[in-house]
Every structure is written in C-alpha cells, then in structure tokens.
Design a protein around this nucleic acid. Structure first.
Length: 160
DNA sequence: GCCAACGTTGGC
DNA sequence: GCCAACGTTGGC
C-alpha cells in the first residue's frame, strides 16, 4: 500500500450522477466537474492517485454512503468553468489562471447494503466525521483512516 | 416544497 | 473590512 494513502468522501445527487452511472461510465471513470466551492476544491488539490473515496448519495432517499471509488487522476482545470453554455460557467475565471479544478475518479465497488446517514449517526466512533457535523455541506471532504475503517466494517465490505 | 445553515457578493 | 442580502446545499 502506498504510504500516506488518504481517504475522502464525495457527494453526488443520484438523479444527476449515481454510483451506477459511474460503474457504467467508459473505463468506469469520470471527471468530477462542477465543484464551485473553494474548500472542496482545495481538498481535491490535495488528492493523490490511488486515494480512496466514499461515494455518497445526497438529496436521496435515504441519503447514504453507497460505495467506493478511487482517485484516478490528480487535480486539473475543470473545463466547464470556461463554457458559457454550462451551468458551471464562471465568467471571472480565465484559462491562464483557472479558478476551478477537478479530479478523475474510478469505480471500485458498490456496497451490498448502503449506509444511510441515520445509520452513520448511530455510530459513536463516527461522531467526528465531517459529514455528520451540523450544517456541514461540503461536497468533497476528508475522511480519517479510522473513520474509513469503521464505515467499511459497517458496510460489511471486503477490504482490499 | 420548506427552510436552516452556510458561502459569496457588493455597498458602504 | 463589516455585514446585509442573496444564492445554494441538502436533510427533512
């Protein structure tokens, strides 16, 4: 295992892009465009290839961690910021100094039983998770190694 | 669909 | 540099 491999959680609305969509993408890989929050962007800039990612369904019934992906490409400019026809267009960003980045993530697995937000809240060991903090809305957030292990265990997922 | 919490913008 | 107004996120 690579030293210092890190763990993250990324949110997506399943009606927009679900973990099934990721699994069915070419090479089971997608670029994570559209992030327009500086904190989330900064976390993506810290990512390394091979970092592990919990795939979280937000605005879902129920909201839940549904599986695992991994970082396949480190941060690079999100082209949608320059696309006037895109929802994510940012008139204040210029190609010589792109404001917004994205990473590529690759599908790894879908949990047999997804872990609802409710279930996660019931686990004392996960009290500190960024996801569970009051008012937390970050769409890209760090997960500690111990939180990663606890969630995996709750999911009954095979550790590889 | 509501609205609390949070981030961003822009007037001053 | 303060802060009110506004927009967005995302659980419920």
């Amino acid at each position: 295992m690579a030293q210092g491999r890190r763990y993250w959680l990324m949110k997506s609305e399943p009606r927009v892009f679900s973990i099934d969509d990721l699994a069915q993408s070419p090479k089971q890989t997608t670029c994570w465009d559209g992030v327009r929050n500086y904190q989330a962007r900064n976390f993506m800039r810290e990512m390394a290839v091979g970092d592990q990612v919990f795939f979280y369904h937000s605005n879902a019934e129920p909201p839940a961690v549904v599986g695992i992906a991994e970082v396949a490409r480190i941060a690079y400019p999100d082209q949608t910021q320059f696309d006037k026809t895109s929802h994510h267009y940012d008139a204040a960003s210029v190609p010589s100094a792109p404001r917004w980045d994205m990473v590529d993530i690759r599908y790894r697995q879908t949990f047999n039983a997804s872990l609802s937000l409710d279930r996660l809240r019931q686990e004392p060991k996960l009290k500190g998770m960024v996801l569970l903090q009051k008012g937390s809305r970050l769409s890209v957030q760090p997960v500690t190694e111990s939180e990663w292990a606890v969630v995996l265990k709750l999911a009954g997922a095979k550790v590889s």
